[in-house]
Amino acid sequence: MQAGLVALSGVCVALALAPTVLAEPLERATTVVSGIADGAPITTDGVYLQLSGIQAGLSPLLLATGLAVMMIAALAVVRRSRVRRTTRGIPAWGCGRTVQTARMEYTATSFAEPLQRVFDDVLHPEIDVDVDHHTESRHYVQAIRYRLHTRDAFEHRLYLPLLAVARRWGDGARRIQNGSIHRYLAYSLFTLIIVLLVSR
């Protein structure tokens, strides 16, 4: 299933490392539209990229190799100094609560909750929290369900009204073709009169 994801990320990485592969065809495309093309925006000598407008250089290839070299160096340092074997499988720190269940993990909603709270007057999220208390006493909580739903602004403010207008227009337009032959004949008669007046 991840094949798609891997493929796409692979393409992104490849493009990041060698953007000039696309530069030349893109440039040919832009020259077709007059007025936009101003020579080659990206020039390269294989390693360094030179932006024609501003005097700035970049070399994604070297950056990537530099990163890799540094990582390998750090790994070497760490591995050389390791005294004992790595032990795996020890329980993660649960602040005293040893049983770590999957339900305690952060979900997408909880991960995005702080950011959503920061941008809440833009997103207008609909939040509903329902708490099940224990039957015996109200102080102890049995389960909390936190649901957060943000409506897509564009769909809600632009597309839906647009569709409503189109549907109303379509229903209104039904009257043009309501089946009565006299209405159709009226169209023909008025058009005939208008054409006669126009071509007088």
């Binding site: 950056l63 540094m70 990582m71 005294v83 795996r88 499988g89 020890i90 329980p91």
Partner: peptide
């Protein structure tokens, strides 16, 4: 710390062991 034993908790993936390397490499670069 360099001398201490490396403990890896139960359900961690490759990101857990890759992250330190990436961090130090990016900072150094």
């Amino acid at each position: 710390l360099l001398g201490k034993q490396r403990l890896v908790s139960a359900n961690t993936g490759w990101v857990f062991s890759l992250a330190p390397l990436v961090l130090i490499a990016s900072a150094a670069l």
